[in-house]
Computed example of a mutant assay.
Amino acid sequence: MSFLDRLKGMLHALNSTEASTETTAASTEEAAPRAITAQRADTLATNQTEALILVHHLDQAGNTLQPADMIAGTIGEEIHLPAVSIAGYHLVNIDGLTRWFTKPQASITLTYERQAGQPVWMYAYDIDRRELIGRPTMYRGKLGTPYEVSAPTVAGFKLLRSVGDVTGEYTTTSKTVLFFYRNENWQQTDLSTGFIQINHETAVYPYPGATTTNYLTKLQPGSTYKTYMRVRLVTHETWYAIGDDQWIPETHLQLTTGDQLLLKLPAGYRVQNQRPVRQTGIVSFVPGKQVHTYIEPYGRYLATVTHGDQVNLIERLADDNGVVWYCLQDQGYLPGRYLTQLDPPFA
């Protein structure tokens, strides 16, 4: 091979090596990752571009509760929502709120829920026995929404009337509705007091119209009792109450003045055997009822004590009419016939 041929071969090899090196370098440069500069999405440069946000106040149905508020600022400036209070509502959701102004125009929607109104209470009431029938019922609802209270059906009773607004709207004030009932077997009642005298031996019954009783004691002819209620049944029978759940049919009695039950004021009397005592006693009158005490024997009324009460006795006296009186601690005088279970029995 001549020298020229060898020189051409060397130059060709050199050119091939350089081309390969350049190609490799170019490939390496293309494959090398480019540097990425991280930018905080929540960091905005403040500029002088004006921005405006409308704040809408809506209820949960999308109705406008009050005119929209406008908040003005510049891009990148922090947003400050105005303090808003809408009577009868409370805020439940905010939509579209950002920390900064991000564009020239935007909107924020505040959604409010209607507050709960005060409850409406319903009571069923026995007008004659003056007691509740069953448990009270509570109605609840949003402020301004309507309500309607229905009278419950009560077994054995008939509805007479209602007191209170059975229809209306829930407000910031609670309401009460009363439904008054009467025993369906009762036609008419009279709550006035009086006295009755037994005509002939009779049992005491637990309710008007009863035919059986668990009371063992029978009332004797000639005995007199105070009555607190008279009931006329739909069967036209009339019954008298002499105590709680203690009734006598009209056919076994007659009305009287009850004078024999009242203390007779003597023209004059002398106290005999007056002495201090330290005893207790139980008031014995009519179950569930009260009896008067007196400022002094045969004097004016002072207070009342209830059948079954335990009282402290501090003085005992008798007068020349044979009436025994006891002085109750801080409660005046009471005839001894209204006291039982004295402890100790003798003082």
Rank of each mutant, 00 (worst) to 15 (best):
Q274K: 07
E22I: 13
E169K: 15
Y170K: 04
E30R: 11
V324K: 09
G73L: 03
A26F: 09
N63D: 10
L91N: 03
I79S: 02
L44N: 03
T24Q: 15
K142A: 15
G88H: 02
T217H: 12
P297N: 08
V286R: 10
Q118G: 08
F195W: 12
L81W: 06
F180R: 02
D319S: 10
T235W: 04
L233R: 14
T280K: 10
L54D: 12
G62V: 14
A116R: 11
T213W: 05
K175V: 01
V324A: 07
V277Q: 04
V55R: 01
G281Q: 00
T111K: 12
D244V: 11
L14R: 14
D165M: 13
W100V: 15
C327L: 13
Y215K: 15
K218C: 11
S107W: 04
L4G: 08
Q118S: 15
T171W: 03
A203I: 07
S192N: 11
T176N: 11
R337Y: 10
Q260M: 09
I295D: 09
L263S: 12
P345Y: 01
V166T: 15
V323E: 09
G308I: 10
F179W: 04
P276Q: 09
A68F: 06
I295P: 02
A19W: 07
P221V: 13
H292G: 08
N321P: 03
P119S: 13
D126A: 04
I75G: 07
S85H: 15
Y225P: 01
M70V: 07
A41C: 06
E77V: 13
Q272L: 14
T153C: 01
L339Y: 00
D95C: 04
Q188D: 12
A68H: 10
